[in-house]
Amino acid sequence: MAQPVVQTIHRDPALFYWILLPITVVMILTGILRHYAMILLQSAPKKQILPQIRQQRSLMRGINLRTNANVLSPSSFQMRKAYMVSAYHEGKFLADPDARGKPRPNPMSDPAMMEGMMGMMKGNVAMMVPQTLIMGWINAFFSGFVIMKLPFPLTPQFKSMLQSGVGTRDLDVRWVSSLSWYFLTLFGLQPVYNFILGSNNSASQVTQQMSQMNPGAGMMGPEQDPDKLFLSEAENLEVIEHRWILEGVEDRLLAKLAL
């Protein structure tokens, strides 16, 4: 069996200086620009009014009571449970007791909700615009170049990934086209950004898209009805099994520090 013929393509070294390098540099710079643009576009988190803080923290208090109940003596736990459950049922902690039982208003009509959506929109725009522009720029100037050869062999499945824009069937997979290089840098520069901008940057689109999968994922997202949350927490409180941590602590201690 003869060795498969090694394809050799003589590339102009100028390809390196005028295509590979510019694409890389431009991609890094756009990432940095996007990071700072996002910082500029970010609106400061809206200040909550006092009843809202109270509502949220009262719910937290219930959760704390549920998770850490074992530090309390049974009698004081029962007392707290009775109080919290009845207060939750009565809606004592609600920021807006009048809105209880009414259906949630349409998020489009709520100005606070609109603001959140605007924030998301801004992020989307800051992501999409440069991407479109650079994609167009690459396509217009650099399409169809084979700019580098990977130093390791690959299976043919990578062909569509590495050779987009170069429509040749027999070209070895190791050759990389300029458009593919663009995509590679688009998705693979996160570590570089981490190095330049610190780990908590908003330069890469991939992370952007990830974070947009679950918008407003928080304890009490605006979409949830606080009353429902309170009621379900009351239910959780009702059913927990209480065990006092101080039960048998002296024996545990003696066993641990055996005299």
Partner: peptide, 19 residues
């Protein structure tokens, strides 16, 4: 009814005191 704990035995308290 409230399930509060009983007082410990005098031996345990003695041991804890020594400890």
């Amino acid at each position: 009814t409230v399930g509060d704990l009983a007082a410990p035995s005098i031996v345990t308290v003695q041991k804890l005191h020594e400890l």
